[in-house]
């Protein structure tokens, strides 16, 4: 049994001839919050997709909570991606019920009601998601990612297009997840929000891991100095 929640060993991912991720290795302990940062096209989303088991590395291996198999890895992971992965023709409750069935969540009905109440969406339970604003949809997507109490949370640009209330809701949920021992990986361009919750910082540059270090008070106070550390 390993102490690492995520172990990435020498992972490379090619799209055709183009290496989107090159020879990346790191170990992330249980309960850590990793801010995975980098400029556009650095390979953050590709890395996150591989961690989630959505795509496989071209070379190297990824271990999630001791699981190497894709389906076992997916069971342990909750992911909030670029798309919200919600069906416009279904209500928020129906969307969450559907994902609860896929993840085989016990006591799903109570959990879903609790999440909708927490997200401030309980009174909209009859409306289809297609009628929701972007912020409301993102809150449903957050509930979908957290619903099965995953050991690992992978969040790709989670604060994008959220209002203050929704940012506070999401950041609170990340803190609660961390308190119960959940390991979190956050990809974001919003350095301040990401560094506020992070215990570790990683920076990808053109697919290579340019920095992997613990977060510190200096970085939290001046996030803009992050890229100076690399150069």
């Amino acid at each position: 049994m390993t102490d690492s929640a995520i172990r990435v060993e020498n992972v490379t991912k090619f799209f055709g001839d183009f290496p989107a991720v090159r020879s990346v290795s790191f170990d992330l302990p249980r309960g850590a919050v990793l801010a995975l940062l980098g400029r556009n096209g650095a390979g953050k989303t590709t890395m996150l997709d591989m961690l989630a088991g959505i795509s496989s590395p071209s070379t190297g291996s990824i271990e999630i909570g001791g699981a190497l198999n894709d389906v076992d890895r997916r069971r342990k992971v909750g992911i909030l991606g670029h798309g919200q992965w919600l069906y416009d023709d279904l209500t928020a409750t129906e969307n969450l019920e559907f994902f609860a069935r896929l993840y085989d969540v016990a006591g799903a009905a109570e959990k879903i009601q609790g999440w909708l109440k927490d997200a401030g969406l309980a009174r909209f339970h009859h409306a289809t998601v297609g009628e929701f604003s972007r912020g409301m949809r993102q809150r449903v997507a957050v509930a979908r990612a957290f619903l099965h109490n995953p050991e690992i949370l992978l969040l790709d640009e989670p604060w994008t297009a959220l209002d203050d209330r929704a940012v506070e809701f999401l950041s609170g949920k990340i803190r609660q997840a961390q308190e119960r021992g959940c390991t979190v990986v956050v990809c974001s361009h919003q350095l301040r929000e990401a560094l506020e919750v992070a215990t570790q910082v990683a920076v990808l540059e053109r697919g290579r891991l340019a920095l992997f270090s613990p977060n510190d008070a200096e970085l939290r106070a001046a996030p803009e100095t992050l890229y100076q550390r690399i150069s």
Partner: peptide
Amino acid sequence: GRESANGCLIGLTAAPAG
């Protein structure tokens, strides 16, 4: 085609359904 909106196919792929 139903899965193409909002990236729902990726959501299905990310779930442990197989």
